[in-house]
Design a protein around this nucleic acid. Structure first.
Length: 914
RNA sequence: GCGCGCUUAGCUCAGUGGAAGAGCACUUCCUUCACACGGAAGGGGCCGCAGGUUCAAGUCCUGCAGCGCGCACCA
């Protein structure tokens, strides 16, 4: 390939490779493949949505899983698509249409016209997010992209409705539901968010009436309420039958102020005597508990708050048409004037808000469709018994709790954008009740005699079918046979009830099998101050801008590196910067290899491996091991951190630097060096072979590393894989020689390690050399010698030391020379460090500061003594020596010996200063 | 009220039974021929508090405190 540029420029390569992968069909899943299947269905983003950081986290994890599975040799289906997102989309379109002045309320346009606008909107804005996912590198099978309102998908939704209706699990009824006055629709319980609010508890006085129906002076029943405006619809005052304060009032009547309506005092167990005044105003139509009480006591149900949240005629002339919040004020003012407001207390309570429109939810009595959840018991046990594994596992508890308290699901919505309820009502007045309702995927044969139910279904009533409705259900398609149940689901815990639980139930009910085997719950992405990301706070960075600035790989890597399994992520742009820096490091490490010239090297020759070579191969082996283990536990942050450390600290900082002793010096120098070794003079040919072997190790490590990084950094790894020529020996397959299908590195097998003599290699010996280098650099630092100044070190070796090792030392120390002198007698105060390799001195001409050197050594000695004391304390404990396992004991003894040896060397050096 | 999570270096966080870690920030030095999106050295921790289990506890158990998040019909 052409020479790599000095810095990695992601913009230049990302689109190129994404296009290549798509063109080669790398993402396309083949149901006929003999390979084992791996499948994920994407949590469908809102069709008109924009990519945000939550998507980045979520889809990056899925992409990592998919890419890893491909490298593991599996046939992968990552099925993408979008959700019609009923309320959300309809609200967005309504807002836009109002802004354009095309309507005030959707009724102005009418259903058909309005839906045309929504579809137009969908055509225009839908699919933006798909393009954004491609930018991120998502390897979805786009040929199978689905939308929850595709005709085939809609048919699935209808079929499911009809089937459940016929089973008696779906029914229609007049119930108290959560009503969103802004969207003017019913909501499910899950769509209501409880928000703690500072409000008031108003104590209202209702005049008691005597037997003649006349107010008795000074006699009142006092009720406490947080919602005084609802009093206009009161039908009773309730007390606890066992409350001695009020038993005498039961059966009496009182006058409802403002309405001048006579209402009874009733007794109901529901009332808690300890709360408020012990008397509860009963508003049958606007409070769920009051509704229950009203049913028990046969009270009327006057509706004083309408579907749009404004007061109705029944609220009285003075209040008709007022907004409920205005009415609250007005009622309070009026009651105050009439001296019927006893007192106002500050009161903190929870108010239900619509998750979508962020307005307080109104309990509202209306005709709705409900579902009794199917296959609930089976679904609950599937998770509890681990057939479906949650990661992290703790979410099973949340799931179980919800499954154990299932309440019927209100599935109808008074919207237009969505799947229409497949039910028609006969216009004829005669005939049996059953004959008046037509429920079928097809309209009745004589449609002119029927009226279709106006409602649409909750969006989640289509999403819960996603894992199989996207794969061709109800047909027994090859795709379903191959890829259902899916392998993993990646989603947020906030939709565990909305989606995960319901998909499990749908899976069992309609497929007779679980929909997925593993569920990975991500955390929530927050800003660096820990706040949720939101448009209003403006703290939500645009992922596309980040991609443009740093590259998609950088964004992916930075996000994954700071996202531990199931914990919230405090996102900081610094994380992406880190990712960008890392990509650049990877790039330049490959560039270094490229600048050494030569073809990609093949087999490593075991006989020519140096200790350093073996050292890095062992570290690589360990890294492969750790990363593979991290993958198995979905610990991607551990995987990235391990990779980062291995590559940057171990490979680049140490191995590459050490390899320069072989690679970047002239052959003559190596030749001279080899004459001094015990192997004797090496021929030029042998030296070339050694050099080639070092290149082979570089190639080996890099080609493994690129593969290990590929799931996280798909673009740069492909660019380098191709550019470096590592695809050379790969077989041609569906994607050509892409890294996407390169085999995932396996830990080096025992025979492999034997082959390369890796077990014989004493990694610790290399560690000791590197440690000596660090100490030597420290010497220079402590002596205040600027890094630019060339210095000479003297090494008094503890044993024979090959000339090549000395050269490595010299290079790593950035020294002019390291003179080896077994008989070196350091001058008094010459700074030196003392290791098992030998003593390393930094002779300073005329600048010896005995006191400074003494201080330095004394400080070091203190450190050593502390370590020795710690180990010795344990070893002196007979309980420890008696009970600790042998290997732990041995380790401690060895450690003690090492520290003691160090101590001896330092004491010796100190003695020479006397 | 019930449940869950968090509390480790200035900041953000890893680390589930055997020598306290990373990134960022900080101090000092270095434009040395892969990389200044870089290199080198360094400073900085009663691992929230109190008990307990254990030869051994940041790690397991029990309390407590603070923060956060779910669930729950108290007007």
């Amino acid at each position: 390939m052409s020479e790599l540029s000095k810095a990695y420029e992601p913009q230049a390569v990302e689109d190129k490779w994404y296009g290549f992968w798509e063109q080669q069909g790398c993402f396309t899943a083949d149901p006929q493949a003999t390979k084992a299947a791996f499948s994920i269905v994407i949590p469908p983003p809102n069709v008109t949505g924009m990519l945000h950081m939550g998507h980045v986290l979520n889809t990056t994890i899925q992409d990592i899983l998919a890419r890893k599975a491909r490298m593991d040799g599996k046939e992968v289906l990552w099925l993408p698509g979008t959700d019609h997102a009923g309320i959300a989309t309809q609200a967005v379109v309504e807002k836009a249409l109002r802004k354009q002045g095309l309507m005030k309320h959707r009724d102005d346009l009418g259903r058909e016209k309005f839906l045309e606008h929504v579809w137009a909107w969908k055509e225009k804005h839908g699919g933006i997010i798909i393009q954004q996912l491609k930018k991120l590198g998502c390897s979805c099978d786009w040929s199978r992209e689905r939308f929850t309102m595709d005709p085939e998908y809609s048919r699935c939704v209808q079929m499911v409705f009809v089937e459940l209706y016929r089973k008696g699990l779906i029914y229609r009824g007049k119930r108290m539901v959560n009503w969103d006055p802004a969207a003017r629709t019913a909501l499910s319980d899950e769509e209501v968010e409880m928000v703690e609010e500072k409000g008031h508890l108003w104590h209202l006085k209702y005049p008691l009436l005597d037997q003649n129906g006349q107010p008795k002076a000074g006699e009142f029943v006092v009720v406490a309420t947080t919602r005084p405006e609802t009093m206009l619809g009161d039908e009773a005052v309730a007390v606890n039958p066992n409350d001695p304060r009020y038993t005498r009032l039961v059966g009496r009547r009182c006058l409802l102020p403002l309405q001048n309506k006579v209402i009874p005092v009733i007794a109901d167990e529901f009332v808690d005597p300890k709360f408020g005044t012990g008397c509860v105003k009963v508003t049958p139509s606007h409070d769920p508990n009051d509704y229950e009480m009203a049913v028990r006591h046969n009270l009327p149900f006057p509706v004083v708050i309408g579907p749009d949240g404004s007061m109705t005629k029944e609220a009285g002339e003075d209040f008709d048409g007022m907004d409920r919040m205005e009415a609250r004020q007005a009622v309070i003012e009026e009651l105050t004037e009439q001296r019927l407001l006893l007192k106002t207390e500050d009161y903190v309570h929870n108010v239900g808000y619509s998750q979508r429109s962020h307005v307080p939810v109104e309990p509202y009595l209306s005709e709705q469709w409900f579902l009794k959840y199917p296959s609930a018991a089976l679904s609950a046990s599937a998770v509890e018994e681990g057939k479906i594994a949650f990661h992290p596992e703790r979410w099973t508890k949340t799931y179980s709790h919800w499954m154990g308290n299932l309440r019927d699901w209100c599935i109808s919505r008074q919207l237009w954008w969505g799947h229409r309820v497949p039910v028609w009502y006969s216009k004829k007045t005669s005939g049996s009740e059953a004959a008046k309702v037509w429920c079928d995927v097809n309209p009745p044969p004589d449609p002119e005699n029927w009226q279709q139910d106006p409602d649409v279904l909750d969006t989640w009533f289509s999403s819960w079918l996603w894992p199989f409705a996207t794969m061709g259900w109800p047909g027994r398609t090859d795709t379903l046979k191959k890829f259902y149940p899916t392998s993993d689901l990646v989603t947020g815990p906030d939709i565990i009830f909305f989606w995960v639980a319901r998909m499990i139930m749908a899976g069992y009910e309609f497929m007779g099998d679980l929909p997925f085997r593993n569920v990975y719950f991500t955390g929530i992405i927050r800003d660096k101050l820990g706040r949720k990301m939101s448009k209003s706070l403006g703290n939500s960075p645009d992922p596309l801008e980040l991609i443009a600035k740093y590259g998609a790989d950088a964004l992916r890597f930075g996000t994954m590196r700071s996202a531990p399994l199931g914990q919230d992520v405090l996102f900081d742009e610094k994380d992406v910067e880190l990712g960008r820096n890392f990509c650049n490091k990877l790039w330049n490490a490959c560039r270094f290899r490229q600048l050494q010239g030569g073809e990609v090297q093949g087999e490593i020759a075991p006989a020519l491996l140096s200790g350093y070579d073996k050292w890095i191969l062992l570290k690589l082996d360990q890294a492969i091991h750790d990363i593979t283990a991290a993958f198995a536990e979905y610990k991607f942050n551990e995987a990235t951190q391990t990779l980062y450390r291995f590559f940057w600290s171990e490979y680049c900082d140490w191995y590459v630097e050490a390899s320069k002793a072989v690679l970047t010096r002239p052959v003559e120098a190596l030749h001279r060096e080899s004459i001094e070794t015990d192997r004797g003079a090496a021929s030029t040919h042998e030296i070339a072979a050694r050099r080639a072997n070092t290149l082979a190790v570089l190639d080996f490590v890099l080609s493994h590393t690129l593969r290990l990084f590929h799931p996280f950094l798909p673009f740069i790894t492909e660019e380098l894989w191709q550019g470096m020529g590592y695809s050379r020996d790969m077989p041609e397959n569906q994607g050509g020689k892409t890294i996407m299908f390169a085999p995932w590195p396996k830990p080096l097998e025992e025979d492999f390690r034997g082959h390369y003599g890796l077990d014989a290699c004493d990694g610790r010996k290399v560690d000791a050399k590197f440690e000596l280098v660090t100490q030597g650099r420290n010497l220079r630092r402590e002596a205040n010698l600027p890094a630019s100044k060339k210095v000479k070190f003297v090494l008094k070796p503890a044993g024979a030391i090959p000339a090549h090792d000395v050269e490595v030392l010299r290079l790593l120390l950035n020294a002019e020379a390291v003179d080896v002198d077994p008989d070196f007698q350091p001058g008094k105060g010459t700074p030196g460090v003392h290791s098992e390799i030998g003593d390393l001195y930094l002779p300073l001409e005329g600048l010896v500061d005995v006191a400074a050197e003494k201080a330095r050594l004394t400080k070091e000695l203190e450190k050593i003594e502390a370590e020795i004391a710690k180990v010795q304390q344990k070893l002196n404990n007979p309980n420890f020596t008696g009970k600790a396992p042998a290997h732990v004991l041995q380790e401690h003894q060895q450690r003690l010996a090492e520290w003691q040896a160090k101590r001896a060397r330092v004491i010796e050096a100190l003695d020479r200063l006397k």
